[in-house]
Amino acid sequence: MTVLLAALGAAIGAPLRYLADRFVQQHHDSTFPWGTHAANATACLLLGTVSGFALPEWAAALVATGVLGALSTYSTFGYETFALLRAGRRFLAFANAAVSLAAGLGALLIGLAVAASLTGAASLTGAA
């Protein structure tokens, strides 16, 4: 059952990623992969938020693994970074890697902070 819930979530998250990517890229005349960057940062923010709650296993499989796992996409990030390198756009490739990592971790921490404020948790790490 857990696998089916993860698959159902992925069936929702993957089209959301595609639509978000296309929407963002339509509004930028740039070779920088803003659409993938936006989808990944959004998924990290939401994953940080839902990770701050004690979700039952089925909900974590559906939302965290399924929807948000499919919304974010490491393979597309890797491919687009490689494509920038292959096109001789070394600065953009490095910027894509650095900005994606920083934005993903930053968004995750913001999501955890949001969850902590909503649940009344004392800290993000769980330490007293």
Rank of each mutant, 00 (worst) to 15 (best):
M1N: 13
M1Q: 10
T2K: 14
T2H: 13
L5N: 10
L5R: 10
L5S: 03
A10V: 08
G13D: 05
A14L: 10
P15H: 10
Y18E: 11
A20F: 11
A20D: 06
A20Q: 07
D21S: 15
R22Y: 12
F23Y: 13
H27P: 05
D29G: 08
T31G: 12
W34K: 04
W34F: 13
H37P: 02
N40Y: 01
T42W: 08
A43R: 00
C44N: 05
L46P: 00
L46C: 07
L47Y: 02
G48T: 14
T49P: 07
T49F: 13
G52H: 02
G52F: 01
F53N: 11
E57K: 09
A60Q: 12
A64Y: 04
L68R: 05
G69C: 03
S72N: 10
Y74T: 15
S75D: 05
S75T: 11
G78D: 12
T81A: 15
A83K: 03
L85I: 13
L85G: 03
A87R: 06
R90C: 11
F91V: 14
L92S: 12
A93I: 09
F94C: 11
A97K: 07
A97P: 03
V99S: 14
L105I: 14
A115G: 08
S117K: 08
A121Y: 06
A121W: 04
A122R: 14
S123K: 02
T125L: 07
A127N: 13
